[in-house]
């Protein structure tokens, strides 16, 4: 992809995925990777940072004799997600008005 992703956009995507349902590290990474071209090692630092900011919490669940650490979004995480979503909509409209409108709407 030619567009570089900012870290806030990545934060927003992770929060968005978790707002729908809890997920463990591997599945979360795969879900985000479906929509974004990122290296897989980018996700762990993001998760850790969001967790430190208390937007996410974790809990452990055993699965086939080993441990799965699930990430769950917190109330302040949802707040942050909504805030980022609002900013994104404004940003998207501005870019669209140039990229799309600039060519078609003379």
């Amino acid at each position: 992809m030619s567009f570089q992703l900012g870290s806030s956009l990545l934060d927003a995507c992770v929060l968005a995925v978790l707002a729908k349902q809890d997920a463990y590290g591997y599945s979360l990474t795969q879900q985000v990777r479906e929509v974004m071209d990122i290296s897989e090692s980018t996700l762990y630092p993001v998760l850790r940072r969001l967790q430190k900011k208390e937007y996410l919490t974790t809990y452990d669940q055993s699965f086939q004799g080993r441990n799965r650490r699930y990430y769950r979004i917190t109330a302040s995480g949802i707040e942050k997600y909504e805030e980022l979503l609002k900013e994104w909509v404004v940003y998207k409209q501005k870019i669209d008005s140039v990229l799309v409108g600039g060519i078609n709407g003379e």
């Binding site: 090692s41 980018t42 630092p45 993001v46 850790r48 430190k52």
Partner: peptide, 18 residues
């Protein structure tokens, strides 16, 4: 994932800012 060095460098850089 990339090399261990690459993974480590991302963890370290993000830790510094966090």
């Amino acid at each position: 994932l990339g090399s261990p060095s690459f993974v480590a460098s991302q963890i370290l850089a993000d830790y510094a800012v966090k």
